[in-house]
Simulated scan of single mutants.
Amino acid sequence: MPILLQINVTANWGSTGKIAEDIGKLAIEAGWESWIAYGRGNPTSASNLIRIGNDFDMKFHALQTRLFDNHALASSKVTEGFIRKIKEIKPDIIHLHNIHGYYLNYQILFRFLKEYDAPIIWTLHDCWPFTGHCAYYDFAKCSRWQTECHDCPQLKSYPASLWHDRSTKNFFTKKESFLGCRNLTFVPVSDWLNGELKKSFLSGYPAVTIHNGIDLSVFTPAETVKEDSTQKIILGVASVWDKRKGLDEFVKLRKLLPENYHITLVGLSNDQIATLPDGITGIRRTENVRQLADLYSMADVFVNPTLEDNFPTTNLEALACGTPVITYRTGGSPEAIDDATGFIVDYQDVEALARQIVTVCETNAISANVCRKRAENFYNKKIVFQQYITLYNNCLKQ
């Protein structure tokens, strides 16, 4: 029985943790023994679980990041202990996801991986592996990562450093650590990120895009009834709302829409909800996916004015519930839709965003059935993630 080990900051929680969980379930169905190593939380899983460190280790790692800008270079003893566990398990495939997040030392891990005789798969959920600091750089309009990071313009962004700028040293430490690893294959989750990867120091490695998938049995059109049939509902969803996710864009948008258009935003904090203007309703983050599917189904249109992103699953969830999507031309966000299921608007063009929203709501030109069909054809997680099992098997044959 082949053995799979996945490594991610979370297990069966959050977007990347759920992806790892779903891949593990498919691997088990295919006859694999599945393990997931993770850094935070207290999850349950169909796979065998390994926690890397504990809450104190994470807090100490975060403190070092704030003071020294050395993110993912702390947790040395914890990482060495985890490597001993890997040697006991002897996985046939090691699958990396987010190895950042205050729980792991990538320099020590890759020193081991370069010696370990097994294929390594690395799914890229963001840009952190090839920058000197940040996970995204579009909002800052920074391209220094293509040559050499320095004078980081996003030092206070995740993983935040209070004052020390180690971006140049981090850039070259990553480059030294990640290059020279045999049998390493990258899996960007969007074509956009695949293109960015080709501009980075990791361009020499093989890479194949595998888009994210969702549970179509959960995210499915629901019978919902509006309290006011004349009202148009605009929905936005994010796990954390900030400028990067487009919260300010919705505030600007509210001023441009007709009075009977109402915006609902899911995932806000209490403080953010308290500051919302009239015409915008805020809802705290919910883990109740059925409730979320009902909100998608009730909405006339799902709007994603993200200012930097990879391949947001919220777009897929909306489509699966029969709701058209309008998004900025940002990162891999436009890849989820086509001309029959939504609109792509130029970056931060709020007036164009408002016009397209009115077009969708007033003309009913986009069919809920067509949106659902696109989700079924391209984003069924049981089909999408099967590509990983095929990739594992192909790697073992080489």
Results as ranks from 00 to 15, higher is better:
185 T>R: 09
313 T>E: 00
146 Q>P: 04
327 T>Q: 04
195 G>R: 09
75 S>Q: 10
178 F>A: 06
240 V>N: 14
5 L>V: 08
149 C>P: 06
219 F>C: 08
234 I>D: 03
13 W>Q: 10
24 G>W: 02
13 W>G: 02
88 E>W: 12
278 D>Y: 10
372 R>F: 06
111 R>H: 12
207 A>I: 05
160 A>T: 10
177 S>I: 07
76 S>W: 04
102 Y>T: 01
297 S>E: 05
397 K>E: 06
319 L>H: 02
164 H>M: 13
242 D>E: 14
259 E>L: 05
239 S>W: 09
242 D>H: 12
20 A>D: 04
135 A>C: 14
138 D>Q: 15
355 R>P: 01
234 I>V: 13
86 I>C: 07
322 G>C: 03
32 W>G: 01
201 F>V: 07
126 D>C: 07
237 V>I: 12
76 S>G: 09
250 F>N: 01
190 S>A: 12
217 S>T: 14
201 F>L: 10
221 P>S: 04
108 I>K: 12
139 F>W: 12
339 D>V: 01
41 G>K: 00
122 W>L: 08
371 C>E: 07
183 N>W: 02
318 A>V: 02
162 L>H: 11
398 Q>D: 11
82 F>V: 03
106 Y>A: 02
371 C>A: 10
24 G>S: 15
112 F>W: 08
123 T>F: 03
382 K>G: 01
206 P>Y: 06
39 G>W: 04
368 A>V: 01
47 S>M: 10
2 P>N: 13
180 G>S: 13
131 T>R: 04
368 A>Q: 11
396 L>I: 09
256 L>C: 03
91 P>Q: 02
194 N>K: 15
174 K>H: 13
342 G>I: 01
255 K>V: 10
360 V>F: 02
313 T>F: 00
391 L>I: 12
223 E>W: 01
145 W>D: 06
52 I>Q: 08
57 D>W: 07
164 H>G: 02
256 L>Q: 04
155 L>A: 12
112 F>P: 09
150 H>S: 15
29 E>Q: 11
357 I>S: 00
398 Q>R: 11
348 Q>E: 14
112 F>D: 05
362 E>N: 08
18 K>T: 05
69 D>M: 11
288 N>W: 10
234 I>Q: 00
240 V>D: 09
358 V>C: 09
206 P>W: 07
241 W>V: 05
388 Y>G: 01
283 I>E: 14
218 V>W: 07
110 F>L: 12
333 S>P: 00
375 A>P: 03
341 T>S: 05
78 V>H: 03
72 A>E: 14
379 Y>A: 07
69 D>A: 15
9 V>N: 06
87 K>C: 08
357 I>N: 03
257 L>R: 01
191 D>Q: 10
249 E>H: 10
84 R>L: 13
263 I>R: 00
17 G>S: 04
40 R>S: 11
207 A>H: 03
383 I>S: 12
13 W>T: 08
250 F>G: 01
17 G>I: 01
132 G>E: 05
88 E>G: 08
94 I>A: 04
205 Y>I: 09
17 G>T: 05
247 L>V: 12
385 F>P: 00
59 K>C: 08
182 R>L: 08
254 R>M: 04
353 L>F: 05
83 I>Y: 06
300 D>C: 05
293 A>W: 07
1 M>D: 00
60 F>V: 15
201 F>P: 04
62 A>E: 15
248 D>L: 11
395 C>Q: 14
49 L>F: 11
48 N>Q: 11
277 P>L: 14
174 K>R: 13
220 T>K: 13
392 Y>D: 00
2 P>F: 12
